[in-house]
Design a protein around this nucleic acid. Sequence first.
DNA 1: CAGTTATGTGAACACGCGTGCATATTTCGA
DNA 2: TCGAAATATGCACGCGTGTTCACATAACTG
Lengths: 343, 343
Amino acid sequence: MAHDRPLADRAAQPRRRARVTAADVAEAAGVSRSAVSRAFTPGAYLDADKRQLVLKTAMDLGYRPNALAASLQGAATDLVGVVVGELSNPYDSEWLAALVSALNASGKWPIVLGGQAEGLDESVTSILSYPLDALIVRGGSLGEALIDNCTKLNIPVIFSGRVISHPAIDCIACRNHIGMVQAVTLLLESGRRRIGYIGGPPTLSSEQERLAGVVERLAEAGLTLAAQVTSDYSFGGGQSAMRTLLQDTSPDAVVCANDAMALGALSFARNCRNLTVPEDLAIIGFDDIAMAAWAEFNLTTVRNPLAKTVDEVLRLLEGRLANPQKPGEVVMIDPDLVKRGTH
Amino acid sequence: MAHDRPLADRAAQPRRRARVTAADVAEAAGVSRSAVSRAFTPGAYLDADKRQLVLKTAMDLGYRPNALAASLQGAATDLVGVVVGELSNPYDSEWLAALVSALNASGKWPIVLGGQAEGLDESVTSILSYPLDALIVRGGSLGEALIDNCTKLNIPVIFSGRVISHPAIDCIACRNHIGMVQAVTLLLESGRRRIGYIGGPPTLSSEQERLAGVVERLAEAGLTLAAQVTSDYSFGGGQSAMRTLLQDTSPDAVVCANDAMALGALSFARNCRNLTVPEDLAIIGFDDIAMAAWAEFNLTTVRNPLAKTVDEVLRLLEGRLANPQKPGEVVMIDPDLVKRGTH
DNA sequence: CAGTTATGTGAACACGCGTGCATATTTCGA
DNA sequence: TCGAAATATGCACGCGTGTTCACATAACTG
């Protein structure tokens, strides 16, 4: 019977062709396996000539120490989970690109989950099977339920874009409230009074903070929102939100919860309603994605500093790895207003 | 001396707090470690009640089998390397997002390298320390030298966007030549005669094929390029390329090697030279990124089918994993012309 | 009841690696 | 020349799994 054949026979038909191993190199070079291991370990006792021979042989055979087997001894894996939601929001794409680049530069290898909403929780559960050094989560892309899972597995979690009230979790977020106050102040100063708002998914804490910033600054000036539409952080969503907004009201300014929607709104106002921006209508976004600076749009927006955010994520990561027991840190980043041509 | 303290002492101060292990669960549940392993192995002999008890205990302790340790027995790791160059080209970002999403959906976990040009080779070498199931490489982001490394390590390589002449490597690419022939044909049919070209990095094979398509179709009509500028596949690069182009010549059409440059060129022509597109000047791009369809641009372009490309990558991957020894497959995808408002 | 088969289970092994320990070899000082 | 210190190296262990193997118990069969 097939399942009864001896080991040697089974080894002749492995599921996956075996990887070159330290034992192979040892045999080929005529040294002990320990010597091979030592040749790849800086500072280990090994005759210089012999080390040279081993490295040469390893090179010929294409041998590399198996990082996974090595991690069994307690070494760090340098594997970091990165969870980002649907990438329909360009800011998320830019965040991911910058983060991946920075992680690579410091010798960490990101396992990326994203692009899909459904099944994301399940996916995260799956990658917890790997001994990750840490898990980096973008904004509201994931429930807090997974924190328990991670702490039980001793995998540190770092949130970017949301503040979690948990004693041992590092967070980094933008002061959304302040950013929106700045934006509305700018509009009020230039005489706008009928101000509308296009928001993102209301469940996101960042969305709530941004809306609150707008509403409170308006209240301070004795005003309320002229109109409010909820959308999905995408360009297309911004377009249709603007259509809805202009059906019922005629605002003289619209604040958008992110740049992608602002660009969509801007596009719709110009091309489908023949409005002149900013004369007929001012539009302000949030994030300052690369496209916002393009001449076509020249969007006035609130910058959500990307480079600084990623730098801080890496700083928190290094700190957490150096001292897993240290208390959680919350880093708040100040946005700044970028005045361009749509206000 | 510190390095002489016995094992038990050292274990009390581990570098990284240990992960919950099968032995821990076994002890807590009062069963053997084998039973724990069996509880997580579908189809293994184990009393239903006992399995239930083990799973319950594991849940409480937050235990998950360590996928890396499991892979030592020969199981697949489900880890896939994904190499993408600088993400300045939006098409690359879209490709990455779509690929990550598709991989996740089929239970593969991508380790992503990219966003940086320098040090990329070194990074790839580093992740070869992990027993990857496969390596997926985007276009010209990497030299062919790594193929040897991978084959020695028995890690299959799949190229997307470039054809490699190697007997055991899977490739998938777009028929760039055909796409450009279609684009130029469209321009010729509408009476354009002074046709310029904005290209990407000349070392990329895709770039060479696209240029060749343009030149050959022109030659067929008895024409040559009215002007030619080389740039970097980015929006800003397209802008400055257009400036250069318009300094020396006055073409009635410009073909761009990708959409990002086409949008930059379009933006520059309109906003900085007050040209009307397409009346004064036709512009055609390549890729059909999401932004090309935006009302502001409404770019006529050659679609490089993204969904189909990713589907094929996954099909090749599954096929390769099912049969590592099968001969390499080359999949060519036909582009199609998307006629919008800039021709 | 004896004999065969089905059903569970724990001990032991292998996977690839780094490293402590003990031993073998060389170098050095007196 | 001899002992001690320094240097080099092989053996063996453990990391956390899945799985084989031998064995124990329960369930049938006639």
